[in-house]
Design a protein around this nucleic acid. Structure first.
Length: 260
DNA sequence: ATGACGGTGTGGCACCGA
């Protein structure tokens, strides 16, 4: 069973690239972030024609998340239960596989702008809310994956300039402690379960030829629960779509689980 | 460097992202 996550930075612009990518990478589940469109503008039909059902939590202009899957997700939850949020950042659903059910939580974490800002304070509250909710989700669903754009570099390996960017947004101790707190719930960064190339990133700025110079960050993650950890076969970042015309600034991350 | 690039909105630029 393959599950992918991809921040596509406007599904309106990137739908053809999503369809192309799915044709070349027929994953079971694709979690999207930053749809930047409302539910009524979501291309349900085009994706259904490609063989995917969609659970959608859209928002005009900003945010918006969706879970695409071969068979429709059930028990769909939008946003963090117990945390009031104006923004569409989380969608969760259960997928039934022959080998058992998997709870997929797809999240577009708050950016946070800069430490000390109101947006950073919102990020911290949001992270606390997410963790509290996930604690219960993990009890209810032992087979759980938390995927998405975390907007945090987990450690110094995950950024092109760990010294120069120390304690700046995505690199603060506070954010990294929140990442570790998620791990402490019983979640594992699937990418780091395997030997990986040095300087592996999932996002590169559009400016200053950042992709060509590999000045990026790994901020898109797939975290697996303890029950799923022994089933992880591989986890890779697919950099190819960053070479597309009009690419997203993020690329897909894919996990392969040994679940029939 | 209060920049760069790219997406969205009801725009002629501002705001946001990371």
């Amino acid at each position: 069973m393959k599950i992918a996550t991809w921040n596509i930075n406007s599904l309106t612009v990137r739908l053809p690239q999503v369809l192309d990518w799915l044709a070349a990478n027929p994953v079971d589940v694709l979690c999207l972030q930053e749809l930047k469109l409302s539910d009524d503008k979501f291309p349900l039909m085009e994706l259904a024609a490609a063989g995917y059902q969609s659970a959608v939590f859209g928002q005009k202009t900003y945010n918006g998340v969706a879970i695409l899957s071969r068979a429709a997700a059930r028990n769909v939850v939008k946003n963090i239960e117990g945390f009031s949020d104006e923004q569409s950042r989380v969608i969760a659903g259960t997928l039934d596989m022959p080998g058992g059910e998997v709870r997929v939580v797809n999240a577009y974490f708050v950016n946070g702008q800069s430490p000390g800002s109101d947006k950073f304070a919102y990020k911290m509250k949001w992270l606390t809310g997410l963790r509290a909710w996930l604690q219960g989700e993990l009890l209810a669903h032992p087979n759980l994956v938390l995927v998405g754009d975390f907007n945090i570099t987990a450690d110094d390996r995950d950024t092109f300039d760990p010294e120069g960017l120390r304690e700046t947004i995505h690199h603060t101790t506070e954010e990294r402690l929140h990442f570790q707190a998620l791990v402490s719930l019983g979640l594992t960064d699937a990418f780091r379960m395997f030997e990986q190339p040095e300087k592996s990133y999932s996002w590169w700025d559009y400016r200053e030829f950042a992709f060509r110079r590999n000045r990026g960050m790994r901020i898109d993650y797939i975290l697996v629960s303890d029950a799923l950890k022994p089933k992880v076969v591989s986890c890779v970042i697919d950099k190819l779509p960053r070479k597309n015309e009009r690419p997203s600034d993020h690329v897909p991350v894919v996990v392969d689980l040994d679940l029939p």
